[in-house]
Design a protein around this nucleic acid. Structure first.
Lengths: 226, 226
DNA sequence: ATCTCGCAAACTGTTGACAGTTGTCAGCTC
DNA sequence: GAGCTGACAACTGTCAACAGTTTGCGAGAT
C-alpha cells in the first residue's frame, strides 16, 4: 500500500458541475461572456461537452454569487452593474477590508507582514522605473492582505465582492497611470501594519480604495455618460 | 438596461428549484434538518414531491450560501459549526453591521430612525413588565437596522452571515435572561442614531454584538465543553 | 402601412432512467 | 477473534427525452 492520499484539497473538482462553475466564472470575469449577455444552456453545454443538468447546477451557484441573474423561463444573463452598484460594492469592500486590516494589525504574525513588504519590492523591480506599467499583482496584494485577518468567512466575503467589482469594472481595467500611485499606497499600508497601527492602516486603506473607486467611476462614466 | 427590480415581489418563485431552496433553507434554520445530518436526495425529492434535478439545483445554492457542505459521491450534509467559526461569523457581522450603522447615521431619513424606535416601543409593551420574555423581534431589529444603510450588497452580506449564525447557534436559542438587556442596548443604539453619532452607535453596536456572541458561546460550551 | 392574432420555433423547467462510486456485510483466511 | 475479500445494496453524478412557456414572425384585417 502506497501512502496515496486522497485528492481532496487541490485536485480539480472531479465533477462536471464543479468544473463548469470554475470555467464559467473565469469566462465571465475575463470577458469571454460579456455583461448583459445571455447564457444559452444548449449551446453552452455543447461547448463544455456536458449535458444541461450539471451546467444548470453550476449556473445556480453563479446566480448565488451574484455574477449572473436568472429570470424564470427567460434565461440567465451575465450581470451588468450600474455605477451606483459599483459604489455599493466598494462601500461593502471598504467595510470588510478595513476590518480585516485592523485584525491583521492586532494578530498577524510579523513574518507575514514582512512577506507582504517583500512582495511589493518584487513587484516594483519587475515593474521597472517607468510609471506606466500596469499593476497585475494588485488583486494578489489585497487577497494576501485579507488572509492576514485569519478569518475564513471574512476572506470569503471579500473574495465574493472582489469578483463582483471585477465584473462591474469589466473592460475598464486599471489605468496604468494609477499603478505607481497604488503601489505607493500599498507601501504605506504595510508600513502602518508593521507599526501595528490598525487605525492608521485602516484609514490609509479606505483612502486607497476610495481612489480606486473614483478612478473606476471616471472611466465608467467616460464610456457611458448616461 | 440596468433594471434591478426583482421579477416577483411576494409570489412563490414559480419554479421547483426556487421554492425548494426556500423550503430547505427554512428546514435547516428551524432545525427540521439538524447540523451534521445528511440530505438524501431520493428521500428529500419524494418528500417535496419533485424530482432530483431541481432539488440538486437548490442544494447547490445552499452549498454556495454555506449552509450545507457537498462531498463528492458521498452526499451533502447540513453544516455544523465550531465555536471558533461562530466567533469568526460574529467578527464578520461586526464589520458589516457597524459599517451599516455608520452609513445609517449619515444618510438614513429621520423617519426610518423614528420607525425603529417605535418598533422597540411595541416590542417592549408586548413583552410585558417581567424581564423573562423572549425577544423574537431581535432578528427583525437587526434586519431593519441593516436596511437603513440603503446598500443592497451590504444587506445581502448581512443576511447571509445572519443565517449562518442562526445555524451555528442551532438550539442554543436566545436566553430569555438577555432579552431585556438586548432591548435596552437596542434603545441606546437608536438613540445614538437619532443623534447622528455614527461612531457612538457603532461602538454601542459592537459591544452589543460581543455580548450576544459571549452569551452564545457560553451556552455552546456548556453543552459541548470540548 | 400598421396592428392584431395565432402559430411555430427555440428555449427553459422537469422528469425518469442509466452509470459509476461508496459503504456494508457476509464469508473466508490466518 | 481480527482482518482481508468480494459481492450487493444504496446513493450520487450524468444524460437524454418530455412538457410548458416565451418569443419572433407572418398572414390577415383595418
Amino acid at each position: 500500500m502506497t501512502e496515496q492520499n486522497r485528492p481532496a484539497k487541490l485536485g480539480p473538482v472531479a465533477t462536471f458541475a464543479g468544473r463548469s462553475l470554475e470555467v464559467l466564472r473565469d469566462m465571465i470575469l475575463d470577458g469571454t461572456l460579456s455583461p448583459g449577455e445571455r447564457l444559452n444552456e444548449v449551446h453552452l453545454s455543447q461547448a463544455l461537452g456536458i449535458s444541461r443538468g450539471p451546467l444548470r447546477e453550476a449556473i445556480q451557484r453563479l446566480a448565488s454569487e451574484g455574477l449572473v441573474e436568472a429570470v424564470t423561463h427567460r434565461g440567465v444573463y451575465v450581470r451588468s452593474f450600474s455605477a451606483r452598484e459599483l459604489s455599493d460594492f466598494y462601500e461593502l469592500r471598504i467595510a470588510l477590508e478595513t476590518h480585516a486590516v485592523r485584525l491583521a494589525a492586532r494578530y498577524a504574525p510579523q513574518e507575514r507582514i514582512d512577506e507582504l513588504g517583500r512582495m511589493l519590492d518584487d513587484t516594483e523591480s519587475s515593474m521597472g522605473s517607468d510609471a506606466t506599467g500596469s499593476y497585475p499583482a494588485d488583486p494578489d496584494f489585497h487577497a494576501r492582505l485579507a488572509r492576514l485577518a485569519a478569518n475564513p468567512p471574512l476572506i470569503q466575503a471579500l473574495t465574493d465582492v472582489g469578483r463582483k467589482i471585477q465584473l462591474a469594472r469589466a473592460r475598464s481595467a486599471h489605468q496604468p497611470r494609477r499603478a505607481r500611485t497604488a503601489l505607493d499606497e500599498h507601501r504605506t499600508i504595510v508600513a502602518a501594519l508593521d507599526d501595528r497601527d490598525g487605525d492608521h492602516a485602516a484609514s490609509l486603506l479606505e483612502a486607497h480604495l476610495s481612489s480606486s473607486l473614483n478612478s473606476a467611476l471616471a472611466v465608467l462614466r467616460a464610456a457611458e455618460p448616461d
